[in-house]
């Protein structure tokens, strides 16, 4: 597949940023834009790329408003695929992707060696496909694809 997809990547800082940046050989071939949480590392690593800066929802009660914002963002950007490695912001975007019937791909971090909890578990359940980095994580999800270690 030599380019041509509209891809939106939702990212935060730290390991989430590393995982999404590691997908660069793939996403740089597509029309990729970002939704990212502002932080010292994201602001520099994503400089020059099309980024919509958005803070994590401050708590679960704010999720509905965050889904509304995510829904409108996806309506404007019309992505073919949504990709994220997890973050509180991922959940409203994955929910909005469900509503807009945009397939979402969740990248599970290498440090996930057992049953995830909270945001990671919810994101994995909302995703159509989960990319896993460890062979023993393939059976942990409904539809997992083993890609190996990303970095």
């Amino acid at each position: 597949m030599s380019g041509g997809l509209r891809v939106v990547i939702v990212s935060g800082s730290g390991g989430v940023l590393l995982d999404t940046l590691a997908l660069r050989p793939w996403w740089q071939r597509h029309d990729t834009s970002w939704v990212a949480v502002p932080a010292a590392d994201t602001e520099i690593a994503l400089a020059g790329l099309p980024v919509t800066w958005q803070a994590d929802p401050p708590g679960w009660p704010h999720t509905v408003a965050a889904v509304w914002r995510a829904y409108h963002h996806l309506r404007r950007s019309r992505p073919d695929l949504l990709v994220s490695a997890g973050r509180r912001l991922t959940v409203p975007y994955f929910l909005a992707a469900r509503l807009r019937r945009v397939p979402a791909v969740f990248v599970e971090t290498l440090t996930q060696t057992s049953t995830p909890c909270g945001t990671a578990r919810l994101s994995a359940r909302l995703a159509r496909v989960v990319l896993v980095q460890r062979p023993d994580r393939v059976t942990a999800h409904r539809d997992a694809v083993l890609v190996g270690e990303l970095y």
Binding site: R6, P25, W26, L81, L131, V145, V147, G148, E149, L150
Partner: peptide, 26 residues
């Protein structure tokens, strides 16, 4: 453990994209 190569990563994600979207690209 070795990290995945750029080529293998791209191929894997292309396969996932094709499966999810059912077409080879816009």
């Amino acid at each position: 453990p070795a990290a995945i190569s750029d080529e293998a990563l791209t191929a894997a994600l292309d396969r996932v994209s094709r499966r999810l979207l059912g077409f080879p690209g816009r």
